[in-house]
Design a protein around this nucleic acid. Structure first.
Lengths: 111, 111
DNA sequence: CTGCATCCAAAAAGATACTG
DNA sequence: CAGTATCTTTTTGGATGCAG
């Protein structure tokens, strides 16, 4: 969500789901609502800052719903909206492509 | 292609096609080979540096083939490899998702 | 025409300490 | 537990000039 206009749908979709984490977060939420700490553990390499930042952006986009339980200790659950679920579905073929070619890609020299 | 290991296929695929331009370049090449200047015109807002940079990375990944014609003036054609085409196919649903929801997304306040 | 090299600015990401 | 605030590092993008 950095741009304001898109040249095509693919442009828009990549803008929304791009970046290092959003697709993974979407996937982490695909089957059931997750708490903040739960997500942090699932995406073990993400910092708290990035996690909350990405979640907020996805909430703004209407991909994710945030449910606050006013308790002590606090509890917040994140879940996919319908839009989020439809995006997740659209990402499935991409995930399969990745599964199939992951090893090839990992084997490419980076430097 | 910033990472060396992936947590899942989706992770890998987003890494490969992520960034501001790669998906658009892939799409620009989907029907026929394109020359450098042609691509530059199709992606009107890209700088030469970014275009060549992204093309090189995609070449390294095995997504794009680069064919040099030793002529004066020089001519270079870029085309999709089979891997590139399969990735493009995997991106189709994402493009459709984008087409469907683009206006909603564009309407979201950025600041 | 196709590209490389350099320098610079902006944005994204990360580490760490702190709070209700 | 679920964040905020601040600072630093890394990555990305862009402008310009030069070359085969």
């Amino acid at each position: 969500m950095k741009k304001r206009t898109y040249s095509c749908g693919l442009d828009a979709a990549v803008d929304v789901v791009g970046g290092k984490w959003k697709a993974l977060i979407l996937w982490a939420l695909h089957d059931e609502p997750r708490r903040f700490g739960e997500l942090r553990r699932m995406l073990s390499d993400i910092s708290e800052k990035m996690l909350i930042q990405q979640l907020r952006e996805m909430e703004t986009c209407g991909l994710v719903h945030r449910e606050v339980y006013h308790q002590v200790p606090p509890k917040v659950e994140y879940s996919l909206t319908e839009l989020g679920q439809s995006l997740n579905t659209a990402l499935l073929p991409l995930g399969e492509w990745g599964d199939k070619h992951m090893e090839t890609i990992e084997a490419i020299p980076r430097d």
